[in-house]
Amino acid sequence: MTPSIPFIDLKAQSNQIRDKINSRITQVIDHGGFILGPEVQELEDRLAAYSGAKHAISCANGTDALQLILMAEGIGPGDVVFVPAMTFVATVEVVPLLGATPFFVDVLPDTFNIDPKSLEQAIVDAKAQGLKPRAVIAVDLFGQPADYVAVNQLAQENGLVVIADAAQSFGGSSNGEKTGRLAQWTSTSFFPAKPLGCYGDGGAIFTDDAAQAELIKSLRVHGKGSHKYENVRIGINSRLDTLQAAILIEKLAIFESELQARQEIAGYYSERLQEYVDVPFVKENNMSAWAQYTLLCREREQLQERLKEKGIPTVCYYPIALHEQKGYLSYPCVSSGLKVSQMLAKQVISLPMHPYLDRKVQDYIIDTVIDSL
C-alpha cells in the first residue's frame, strides 16, 4: 500500500501544543479583545526579543508587510524597486500597486538569492534609462539569508533602501545575526506553511528605528493619529488578529527546537542525496530556516511523476520566472539577462520538509528519489 506523506505536517505540530493553543484561544474569547488585543503586543515583544531587532510590528500578512515598508519610505510613481526574478509574486506586486516600477534582477546559481553583480548592473541600467532607483527587496529564498553584506554595501553607495523579504527565512541567520537585523527593514510572513506559521494569515515588520516603527503602526490602522477617528496620513487596514497572535506565541515557544529538527532533516537529506543530485548549498556562516528543501533536477517532470506514484508529494517553486509572468512583461530587466532565474524555474523541485518528518519516512523518500534518478 502506497503511504500517505504530507508535504508539510501541521497536524503533527498542533498535536504537540494543542492544549496550550486551546488555552490561549479560550483566553482571547474570554477577554474579547479580538483586534489588537493584549496578545498582539505580547507577540511583538517576543518577536523583537527573538530576532534582536528593537521593534517588531505585526500586520495582516507578509505581502502587506512589504507594502507597509514601501509606504513608510514614501516610494511611489517615478521610483524603481529592484526585485529578484526568482521568487513568489508577492515580492513584486506591491511595487506597481504603489505606482512604482519593479526592475528585475537575476539570482545566484548556488544560493538562489539575489546576485549582487546583477543588482549592480541593474542600478547602472536604471540610471541610464532615466529612472530613479530607490530600494531593493532581497528575498531569502527557501530559508537562507541573502548576501546582505554585499547588498547593503551597494545600497549605501547608491542611496537605496534595503528590504529583506524574510517570508521563508525567519529563524535563519548570517554571520551570527538573526533574520530581522540583516537589513534596514525586514518583512516576514506567518502563512501556515512558513517555518513559523499561524492558523490563517499574518505577517510582521522588523526595524531598529523607533520613529519608523511608530509610522508603520499608524499606516497599518488606516493612517491613525492619536485616536481611532483621527487619520493623519493615507494608510491601509492590516492588523494581525488577536487569535493568530495567541497561536503564534505558543508556536514561537517551540520554534527553536523545530529549527534544530529542520537542520538535522536537511543535513540527512543532503548526506544521502549529494552523490545523485544537486542538493542545496548553504554559505559558510549562514544558517537556513529550511522553509523548503529544494533540489536541482534537469528531469524534474519525470522525477515529480515517479515520486507522486509512490505517494511522495513535491512542489516546484516557482515554475514561471516573474519577468515572464503575463502581468509583468512590461517592466524592465537587467541588461545582463536573467538566465539563472529562467534555469531555476525549470529545474527546482522541493521535497517534504517539516520538523516532524521521522527518519523512516525520510529514508523512504530518499530511497525513492535515488531509484527514480
Rank of each mutant, 00 (worst) to 15 (best):
I57A: 02
D201G: 11
V136I: 05
G78A: 07
N15H: 15
T101L: 00
S4Q: 04
G235F: 01
V151G: 01
G32W: 08
S173H: 10
V139R: 01
P313G: 08
L307G: 01
R134L: 06
G32I: 05
Q129H: 14
L215T: 08
L196F: 06
S270V: 02
D64T: 08
H31A: 02
H227N: 10
S226K: 14
M343Y: 14
V282I: 15
N158R: 11
E177R: 13
D110V: 04
C198L: 04
L351G: 09
D209G: 03
T26W: 01
D371R: 07
Y293H: 02
Y199Q: 08
L154S: 02
L357K: 10
I365C: 10
P133W: 01
H55R: 14
R359C: 09
Q292V: 10
G235T: 00
R46V: 01
N286M: 11
K308P: 07
S238F: 00
V105F: 02
C59T: 11
P355W: 03
G200P: 00
L196K: 06
N237M: 13
K132Q: 14
D64V: 09
L119R: 09
L10W: 02
I57R: 02
Q27L: 12
Y229H: 07
N158C: 09
N231L: 11
L344F: 01
P280F: 12
N158K: 12
Q13I: 15
S257E: 13
P116V: 07
Y331T: 01
P195F: 10
D209A: 04
I254E: 10
D209W: 00
S372P: 11
P96G: 15
A135D: 04
F112H: 14
A166E: 01
A345V: 07
T314K: 07
D358H: 15
A213N: 05
D358E: 15
E305L: 09
E42W: 03
E275R: 13
L295H: 11
M343E: 15
G202D: 04
Y50A: 04
E271A: 13
S372A: 15
I8G: 05
A53I: 14
C333A: 12
G223C: 05
C59A: 07
N22F: 03
V94L: 11
I35K: 06
I320Y: 02
D363V: 06
E73I: 00
V105A: 04
K178A: 05
D208A: 13
C333Q: 13
E120R: 10
M343W: 12
